[in-house]
Amino acid sequence: MTTGSEEQTRTRVRTDRLPMWRIGLTGGVVGILCCAGPTVLALLGIVSAGTAFAWATDLYGNYAWWFRLSGLAVLVLLVWLALRRRDQCSIAGMRRWRWRLLGVLAVAVATYIVLYAVTTWLGTLA
């Protein structure tokens, strides 16, 4: 059996960590929505593959940087909210979490690259 203080310590340890994976995946997905959005619609059968390909090509060709900047903005906002919730929104807090913050960025970039590769591959099948 665990005592109340042990349970509080475990809970504090779990909630004290920066949600690196959730923040990184969310930022990466928002950044690639120009391609992943039409692809998901096609996979769900809402639009045809040809329509999804045309939409993704148009969105990626004309608005890719808007989506990337939106993904970066979501990433920054979620990191800011997570650090603020922990009262770590300072230079010292950034130093304390620097490796987790680099991990967030790495997860976001990897998510973007993987989804880009998958949607490009699916585009060759359309």
Rank of each mutant, 00 (worst) to 15 (best):
M1V: 06
T2A: 14
T2K: 15
G4I: 09
S5P: 00
E6D: 09
E6N: 07
E6G: 04
Q8V: 07
T9D: 06
T9N: 08
R17P: 00
L18M: 07
L18D: 04
P19H: 02
M20V: 15
R22A: 07
I23N: 01
L25M: 11
G27A: 07
V29Q: 01
V30R: 01
I32D: 01
C35T: 14
C35M: 15
G37E: 02
P38F: 08
T39V: 01
T39R: 03
V40M: 08
A42W: 05
G45P: 02
G45T: 08
A49N: 10
A49C: 03
A49D: 10
G50E: 07
T51E: 06
F53M: 09
F53Y: 15
L59K: 03
L59N: 14
Y60K: 01
Y60W: 01
G61K: 09
N62P: 00
Y63P: 01
W65C: 00
W65Q: 09
L69A: 15
L75K: 04
V76C: 03
L78G: 06
W80D: 04
L81P: 00
R84M: 05
R85D: 12
R86Q: 14
Q88T: 00
C89G: 07
S90R: 11
M94T: 14
M94E: 05
R95Q: 13
R96L: 13
W97G: 02
W99E: 15
W99D: 15
L101V: 09
L101R: 08
L102N: 02
L102I: 11
L102R: 06
L102P: 00
L105Q: 05
V107R: 07
V107T: 14
A108E: 06
T111F: 07
Y112A: 13
Y112D: 05
I113Q: 15
V114P: 12
Y116G: 05
T119S: 12
W121M: 10
G123M: 03
T124V: 07
A126P: 12
